[in-house]
Design a binder for these strands. Structure first.
Length: 642
RNA sequence: GCCAACAUAGCUCAGCUGGUAGAGCAGCUGAUUUGUAAUCAGCCGGUCGGCGGUUCGAGUCCGUCUGUUGGCUCCA
C-alpha cells in the first residue's frame, strides 16, 4: 500500500500502481468526470498514469491553470488530427497551449494554402472527432522507432525535434488515428472537448527563425462547455467595443498623422481636457505629499546621457543624436527624466535636512520603439511620464516607499481600479555580480520594499532575478472591468545614478553621503494610463474627469440665451460643458450626447426657462427630474464624489 | 525590425473574373421651433494611401514606399 497526500493535507492509502483517476473516483464520480490531469509530486501528468510510491497528488480540473493548459494542449492535438484527416500529407511542427488562453499548431501545409474560410470545416471535423471520445494514449518509444515513424511519415520537423531528445525519454501520444511526438501530459479523452473555435491564422517561422521555413500557425480556443465558448467570444466582443483606438476616434480624444509620424500621438481638445484633469489631480495629491514640480527640456546634451549610462545602453536602438552647426555637438531627445533631475539635485550642496527631496515632472520622453510594437496609445514613441524622483537617505527608504505605495493606491482607487497586486522584483541570488551597489544596500532596499508592501497590505508576488541591475523594484498590476490584467505604475530603487552623477548630501555628521534615489510613476505614462482608463470605463469617464461634463440641450433656439446663462453660472462651480444650439429635435440632441458619452445632459425648454430650472438627465440612466441651479450644483458635486 | 493581411469621401463600408467610382452617417443650404436615443428636402464632397510598371484601358494585376492591424521560439 502507498500513501497519497491530497492538497487538503489528508492522507489516503491505495494499492501501488493506482492512477490519479482511480484516486479521483474513490473520492467522487463527479470529481472523476472533471479530472483533466493530475499534479503528482509537483509534476503535471496524465491522470491515467500509475503511481507506485508515496506521493502528493493534486487532481487538476478546468478550475486549475495547469488543467486548462493540459486541456488546450490536447485541443491542439485534436486540431492536428482533424487537419490530418481533412488534408493528408500535412507536416506538423509544434502545437502548444498558451498561457493567455487557447492553443496553436504550426503546420507546413505544403502546396496547399489554408485560409480562415477553411476554419468551419476544420472545427466541424474536430467536433466529430471529439464526440468519438478517443483516449489520449501515452507510449514510451525508442528514439530509433520514433525516427522511423516520422521518416515514413515524411515529417522533417518532428525529426529535427527528435534530434534534440535523448533516447529513453521519448513519448508518443495517440488519439484516434493521430500520433504525435509529445511530452504530454494530456486529458483523458477527446470527449471532454465540447466547444472549439479557430481564431486566426498567422505566419510563423520554424523555431522562430526567419531563415527557416515559414509555417502556417493556426490559433484556436476550446472549452469543456459550449456556454464558456459563448462567454469567451462575448468577452472578446466587449473588448473590441472598448478598444481605446476606436473610442479615441469616436470621442475625438486623440489622433495620429502619417505626416507627424508613426507612434506620435496628437491630443485633440477633448483628450487634452481629460489628460489635464488627470494631471491636475495627480499634481495636487503629490504636492500634498511634499513633491515639488520641475520642468526640464525635451533634449539634452549627449554628455548627460553618457554620464547617466543611457547612451551606452540605448545608443543605436534609439532616435539618433541631433547635430548642431557646432562641430561635434550632439543632443539627444530625452528618453528619461532622471538624468535631468539628478542635475537639479547636484546643482548646489545639499543638506540632509532637505531630504527626502521629491522632484516631480510630467516629463515627455521619446523612445524609438520598433514599428511592429506600436499600438494605439499603449505603445508609442513619444509619451509623458507622471515621473518623480525621490532623493533620500538610506534609512528613509522604507518610509518613502510606503508613502509612494499609498499615493499610488489612492490615485488608482480614485480612478476606479480596486483590484491590485504588486510584483516585487529582487536580485538573482545566484548572480550577485550582475548588480551594482553594496550587498548591505541591496539587502536593506529589498527588505524596505518587502516590509513596505506588507505594511501597506498589498497582495504581492515576488520574482527573483527580475530586478534591474541598479536596484529592486515594485510594479503595480491592476485588473480592469472585464478582468484583464495590466501592469501600471512602477517604483524602483536606484543606487546607480546617484553614483554616476556623484550626488552627495552633507549628513548630520558633517560628512558627505550618497543619497538613494527612487524612481516612481503611478500611471506609468499618461498615454498608456489613459488607454487603460478608456478601456476600463468604455469611454464613460467618471464625472470629474469627463472632457465635457454637461451638455446643455435646448428644446428650441428660443432658449439658447438661457442655456448660455446656465453654462456661465456653472463655470464658477468648476462644471464645464457646451450648449447644443443646433436646430434639431430634443431626441436627436439627447442621442448625440448619449453617444458622445457626456455624463450629464441639461434639458432646457419653456418651463425651465420660466422657473429658472434645468431638467437633468444622466448618461445611460435617463431623466433625473428638474431642479434649480443650486440644487443641480449640489447634485453634481454629490455625483462627482461617488 | 521580420512575416502576413489590409488601405476607396471626414466616419463606416459596397464596388463580380481589368472597361474611366457608389451608399449611409457627418458637413453645407433651406424648410421645420420641436420635451428625453436619429425631422424632411436639396447640395457639396474622392488624382480609390504615394510612386513606378504591365495593358488600348488599372480602384481592380505586378513592384516599391508609407501607414494600419494581427502575429513573431510560453519548445515535441
Amino acid at each position: 500500500m502507498i500513501n497519497i497526500t491530497l492538497p487538503d493535507g489528508s492522507v489516503r492509502q491505495y494499492e501501488a500502481g493506482v492512477s490519479s483517476m482511480d484516486v479521483a473516483r474513490s473520492i467522487s464520480e463527479g470529481l472523476a468526470r472533471n479530472v483533466l490531469a493530475a499534479k503528482v509530486n509537483g509534476e503535471v501528468r496524465d491522470a491515467s498514469r500509475p503511481i507506485n510510491e508515496d506521493s502528493s497528488v493534486a487532481l487538476l480540473t478546468w478550475n486549475d491553470d495547469d488543467g486548462k493548459m493540459t486541456f488546450w494542449h490536447s485541443s491542439a492535438h485534436l486540431m492536428a488530427e482533424a487537419l490530418e484527416a481533412l488534408y493528408p500529407g500535412m507536416k506538423f511542427a509544434i502545437g502548444p497551449a498558451l498561457k493567455d488562453g487557447g492553443f496553436y499548431y504550426d503546420i507546413d501545409a505544403g502546396d496547399r494554402t489554408l485560409s480562415s474560410t477553411d476554419f468551419k470545416k476544420i472545427e466541424d471535423k474536430m467536433k466529430e472527432l471529439a464526440r468519438q471520445k478517443n483516449e489520449y494514449k501515452r507510449e514510451e518509444i525508442s528514439k530509433a522507432d520514433a525516427i522511423k515513424y516520422f521518416e515514413e511519415k515524411g515529417d522533417e520537423y518532428k525529426l529535427e525535434l527528435l534530434e534534440g531528445l535523448e533516447d529513453g525519454q521519448i513519448t508518443f501520444y495517440t488519439q484516434g488515428n493521430f500520433t504525435d511526438l509529445c511530452r504530454g501530459p494530456h486529458i483523458p479523452d477527446t470527449g471532454k472537448i465540447k466547444a472549439v473555435k479557430l481564431m486566426k491564422l498567422a505566419g510563423a517561422y520554424w523555431r522562430g527563425d526567419e531563415n527557416n521555413a515559414q509555417l502556417t500557425r493556426i490559433y484556436g480556443i476550446a472549452f469543456p462547455k459550449a456556454k464558456e465558448l459563448t462567454e469567451y467570444l462575448e468577452r472578446l466582443e466587449e473588448a473590441k467595443k472598448r478598444d481605446h483606438r476606436k473610442l479615441g476616434q469616436e470621442l475625438e480624444l486623440f489622433m495620429f498623422s502619417e505626416k507627424v509620424g508613426q507612434g506620435l500621438p496628437i491630443w485633440l481638445p477633448k483628450g487634452t481636457r481629460l489628460r489635464e484633469r488627470l494631471q491636475n489631480f495627480l499634481r495636487r495629491e503629490q504636492e500634498k505629499q511634499g513633491y515639488q514640480m520641475v520642468i526640464t527640456p525635451h533634449i539634452g546634451n549627449k554628455e548627460l546621457y553618457v554620464t547617466s549610462g543611457h547612451y551606452a545602453k540605448y545608443g543605436e536602438d534609439s532616435f539618433q543624436p541631433i547635430h548642431t552647426p557646432k562641430e561635434g555637438e550632439e543632443f539627444l531627445l530625452k528618453p528619461m527624466n532622471c538624468p535631468h533631475h539628478c542635475e537639479i539635485f547636484g546643482h548646489r550642496p545639499r543638506s540632509y535636512r532637505e531630504l527626502p527631496l521629491r522632484l516631480g515632472e510630467f516629463g515627455t520622453v521619446y523612445r524609438y520603439e520598433q514599428s511592429g510594437e506600436l499600438h494605439g496609445l499603449s505603445r508609442v514613441r513619444g509619451f509623458t511620464q507622471d515621473d518623480a524622483h525621490i532623493f533620500c537617505m538610506p534609512d528613509q527608504l522604507k518610509q518613502e516607499f510606503l508613502s509612494v505605495l499609498d499615493l499610488t493606491r489612492m490615485v488608482l482607487t480614485k480612478m476606479g481600479f480596486s483590484e491590485f497586486t504588486a510584483q516585487i522584483s529582487l536580485r538573482d541570488p545566484d548572480n550577485p555580480d550582475k548588480y551594482i551597489g553594496s550587498d548591505e544596500n541591496w539587502d536593506a532596499a529589498e527588505a524596505a520594499i518587502i516590509e513596505a508592501a506588507a505594511e501597506a497590505g498589498l497582495t504581492t508576488v515576488t520574482e527573483l532575478g527580475e530586478a534591474a541591475f541598479y536596484g529592486p523594484k515594485l510594479d503595480f498590476m491592476i485588473k480592469d472591468a472585464i478582468g484583464r490584467q495590466w501592469q501600471l505604475g512602477t517604483i524602483q530603487v536606484d543606487y546607480n545614478l546617484p553614483e554616476r552623477f556623484e550626488l552627495e548630501y552633507i549628513g548630520s555628521d558633517n560628512q558627505a553621503h550618497r543619497p538613494v534615489m527612487i524612481h516612481r510613476a503611478p500611471f506609468g505614462s499618461m498615454e498608456r494610463f489613459i488607454s487603460i482608463l478608456i478601456e476600463n470605463t468604455a469611454g464613460k469617464f467618471p464625472l470629474w474627469l469627463a472632457p465635457d461634463q454637461v451638455a446643455i440641450l435646448t428644446i428650441s433656439d428660443r432658449f439658447n440665451d438661457y442655456a448660455h446663462e446656465v453654462l456661465n453660472k456653472l463655470a464658477p462651480h468648476d462644471i464645464s460643458g457646451f450648449v447644443d444650439e443646433r436646430n434639431e429635435k430634443i431626441g436627436r440632441k439627447i442621442r448625440d450626447a448619449e453617444l458622445q458619452k457626456v455624463p450629464v445632459m441639461l434639458i432646457i425648454g419653456e418651463s425651465e426657462a420660466e422657473e429658472g430650472k434645468v431638467s437633468v438627465r444622466r448618461q445611460g440612466e435617463g431623466d433625473q427630474g428638474s431642479m434649480s441651479l443650486t440644487e443641480f450644483t449640489e447634485w453634481f458635486e454629490a455625483a462627482a464624489e461617488s
